[in-house]
């Protein structure tokens, strides 16, 4: 009996945790999102679809969604292009510095997101390191605008999310049997052919997971977009945050959040469906 009690406690704690920290806020969010925005009550009034009608009819929100998805997709692509070679190197190197290199790769995670954003502002501003260097080299004559626009957001977010991509890809590369690469080499495949025919196809599950993860984290981040977008570039999370903190319209903020959530969920499910058929072969 005692055991049974203990088992329930083990199960109960996570359930409690889940309810308090996930389910309750989500329910609250749903209630506020589907309520009538009232000037005198920031949590909204009776049930209504007004917020969503506004989101779907006002082109501002459609454009914002598009910008958000574009940033998320660009960041996913950029982290993939930068992260794959890095993950490949880290997964295969015999170097004693491997631990240190891995730490360097993951280091963005350990630094406050605000600090990182300001660091990028310093580097990318008109008189920053990047622009000065480019002008010194004579590649440009006038500073290129790299912050307070999408470019800045993409650069800084790529930096922040690169570790997630690297970890996801490394996971699948490390579970790949080295003998497969040896086998391909013994059959006459050069290094690039081994990469093309064996390593890359078999690491696609990791790539898919990394792309999905980075995309979701990218479209839902708000600190970096606020700081590097300078409130000029609007993304869905920035818009929602403004509703909560400056417009004091929690009902509409909740609706934007729900809309973003639904959009991301939809894209994720579609992506998953699309890949499942193709990856099933490789994962078999």
């Amino acid at each position: 009996m005692r055991r049974n009690w203990l088992a329930w406690a083990w199960l109960g704690l996570p359930i409690l945790y889940f309810c308090l920290l996930f389910a309750v806020p989500l329910i609250d969010l749903l209630r506020m999102g589907f309520s009538k925005p009232l000037p005198q009550r920031i949590t909204g009034g009776d049930f209504s679809l007004d917020n969503f009608v506004e989101i779907f009819t006002n082109p501002l929100y459609r454009d914002t969604l598009w910008v958000t998805i574009r940033i998320g997709a660009t960041v996913a692509l950029a982290t993939l292009l930068l992260g794959y070679p890095l993950a490949l190197f880290l997964a295969r190197t015999q170097s004693r510095a491997k631990g240190f290199l891995l730490f360097l790769t993951l280091s963005p995670i350990f630094i406050s997101v605000v600090v990182r954003a300001y660091g990028w502002i310093v580097l990318l501003s008109n008189k920053g390191l990047v622009n000065s260097a480019l002008m010194q080299l004579g590649l440009i004559t006038r500073p290129v605008r790299l912050i307070f626009n999408e470019t800045g957001i993409v650069i800084a977010t790529t930096h922040v999310l690169l570790p997630f991509m690297v970890l996801a890809i490394m996971g699948s590369l490390q579970s790949l049997d080295i003998a497969l690469e040896d086998a391909a080499a013994s059959l006459g495949a050069r290094r690039w052919q081994v990469l093309r025919d064996v390593v890359i196809p078999l690491s696609l599950p990791g790539v898919a997971a990394g792309v999905m993860l980075v995309f979701i984290l990218g479209v839902s981040s708000f600190v970096t977009p606020i700081l590097l977008g300078g409130q000029v570039v609007l993304t869905m999370p920035v818009l929602a945050l403004q509703q909560f903190t400056t417009a004091f319209n929690w009902a509409f903020g909740s609706a934007i959040t729900l809309f973003l959530l639904a959009a991301v969920l939809g894209i994720t499910i579609a992506y998953d469906r699309l890949l499942q058929g193709r990856l099933a072969r490789g994962a078999a």
Binding site: A179, L180, D182, A183, S186, G188, R190, V198
Partner: peptide, 16 residues
Amino acid sequence: YRRKLGVVFQNYALFP
């Protein structure tokens, strides 16, 4: 890749 030797591995190492 230039040795032209046929290798059969312990776990076969077939491309899955």
